[in-house]
Design a protein around this nucleic acid. Structure first.
Lengths: 357, 357
DNA sequence: CCTGCTAATGATAGCGCAATCATTGAGCTT
DNA sequence: AAGCTCAATGATTGCGCTATCATTAGCAGG
């Protein structure tokens, strides 16, 4: 029982208290005392065990275990200015797209001994700014953030941070530091080309949330149709709501209604919407793919197994998380990286839902 | 530019360096100097602004903004032993069940000014032990962990931690501190009762991963069938693999094969498996629900929209995250909680896939 | 006018750890 | 045997912040 650190006279409780475990927090010094070495040696046993002789190391380790010592990371970070924390900002926790990226990040960062501090920006740049401040206050050693839609103030913070930063998900013209993503616009373009190639003529678009990446996909869609003179403004149905299967069904119904069912294909901006459209089409007795093609985006597992199987755009989400993490770790270890900008590409998985031929 | 803190004679660089922004890390003291007050006053402006006169507060805030000062949380935590961090351990990032719980946690914790440090235990108690150490090294103010399957050593750490801890997902006989969950065994039991009530006779079971909660569901299934003398060991097909739609289809095929197609209902331990079974049944031209009932678990969104719609067990995942978080925050604020143990309940959503009548 | 009080601000001393430099004692070289 | 290197260990100091107590000024009440 330690005396409180003021200059009053202390009446210390009976010595019996001395042996009590588990009350006070155990510190490095406690372990040092218990094992008869100096504090710094205990520190070495934990952080650079190769610098301590084996006998001492074992002796100290024994004390650590028996006392149940757990290092205080705040003290360690403060003293060493190394936090072993990587900050990650994603726009949504409920979107499988981001959770799979996260999996990749956790896999690599965990293995490299980094903790991940994760924040949710709710697709809002303002929220993101607040969250980035939070992240920075933890002195992270690196940062992974989504997209390039930061506020001015946020960009300022990020530039000043002087740590490796990767912006993920989309390809950016002017990244803050590093960038891993793929070309959403081109993917949307290619989807339409595929549908046209299958003989579909009047191709609708269903979108929700309409974040920057979704917008890019829509631009690609529009461009491809304009090139062949088949773009019709009223074939586009969108909502700011978050995506879901239910919303997909609703949007599909509303597309059918507003176009008098003339549309013969739909590009849904993600697979949830596409599944909703597909299930709704089934309920409306519209035959897919004979009367209606449906194409999704992201290639979630259900796309492959649903009947008919769903054409979708496959992107390496997990791999994107892995890549971004590896780049950060390489920079932290002062190893060279191939490029500051990585295009992960995508692949259109052509399945039954768009194959009229 | 500060002189390095050793006792060598220093040759300070020319004064021009003084005005340079953005190089050194900005600290409290820099802000204090810039605004002509003491460090502690700056600290108050940040943490207890009501204790500082308005004029000073504005003056200091201006300095904070113009310098782009971001407090160092490690120093703050070390000095105050308050980290504003909540540790969360879940078994999997790719399972929607946990990400929805997480959403609830983030919602509440974010609003209350807590950061969430999230770790993934990969369904392994040993990994969990390591991860809990990691969490504790951040001196979290509270902990949310999954289930009750901790190692002895881990339980020890947790007991010593003296912070509010909630074990979520399942109801525990002997929780470490607080507990929020629902009765998986009873849910499994009720599912079977429902299927029996619909006139199904030979009820199979499909399970993957087989974590403790899945085991409990299986026990409930078994009990219900034993009570009516209809339990058949070989109607159970499981795999230690993680759940997925693909695995669900495979297990369904193998159940059909090993029972010569005599089974007329399947309780799938989650909705991914159930969707896999449903899609596979469709491909095998087995009519659902006429020839085969399929029941899932968790009630993910697809269950409601797939054709035929899928009977499933709905559980308040988001709400569970919210509840657990609220309990921790109440304890941290020294407010009373209704009970240390909360049963969130569940509801069987009876849909077309099990309705022969 | 003095006492007593409160509100506003400051000085000081750590929080628990690791960077830095110092010390010791082998083991080697020549 | 002197001089050297190097490995192993320790003493000291400060990372950036806040808890604690001290100080000051302003003001009410008698």
């Amino acid at each position: 029982m330690l005396a409180k650190n003021n200059n009053q006279v202390q009446i210390l409780p009976m010595k019996t208290a001395k042996k009590r475990t588990s009350d006070k927090k155990i510190t490095l010094v406690d372990v040092a005392d218990a094992s008869g070495v100096s504090a710094i040696t205990v520190s070495r046993v934990i952080n650079q065990p190769e610098k301590v002789s084996e006998s001492l190391r074992i002796q100290v380790q024994k004390a650590i275990d028996s006392l149940g010592y757990i290092p205080n990371q705040h003290a360690s970070s403060l003293a060493s200015s190394k936090s072993k924390v990587i900050g990650v900002a994603i726009p949504s926790l409920s979107n499988i797209v981001f959770t799979e990226v996260l999996r990749g990040i956790y896999e690599v960062m965990g293995a490299a001994g980094y903790k991940v501090l994760l924040v949710d920006t709710h697709y809002s740049p303002l929220e993101e700014e607040k969250m980035v401040r939070t992240l920075l206050s933890q002195s992270p050693e690196g940062l992974i953030i989504t997209g390039g839609d930061q506020t001015k103030a946020c960009q300022n913070f990020l530039h000043k941070a002087r740590i490796p930063i990767v912006q993920i998900m989309e390809l950016l013209a002017d990244p803050i530091d590093m960038n891993v993503g793929f070309a959403h616009g081109r993917a949307g373009f290619d989807v339409v080309k595929h549908l046209l190639g299958q003989g579909y003529e009047r191709i609708g678009f269903i979108g929700a949330r309409m974040d920057p990446r979704v917008q890019q996909r829509m631009q690609g869609y529009k461009l491809a149709l304009e090139q062949v003179g088949k773009f019709e403004k009223n074939y586009i149905v969108t909502t700011p709501e978050p995506s879901s299967i239910g919303v997909g069904g609703d949007l599909f119904k509303s597309l059918m209604a507003s176009t008098n069912g003339i549309v013969d294909a739909v590009f849904c901006v993600n697979d949830d919407l596409a599944l909703g459209a597909l299930f709704e089409a089934q309920r409306m007795n519209i035959r897919v793919p004979q009367d209606m093609a449906i194409c999704g985006f992201n290639d979630i597992e259900a796309a492959e197994y649903v009947n008919p199987s769903l054409t979708s755009v496959s992107v390496g989400r997990y791999e994107m998380g892995v890549k971004a993490s590896e780049m950060i770790i390489r920079v932290l270890n002062e190893k060279p990286i191939d490029s500051k900008k990585v295009d992960m590409g995508y692949e259109i998985k052509k399945r039954a839902s768009t194959s009229r031929i």
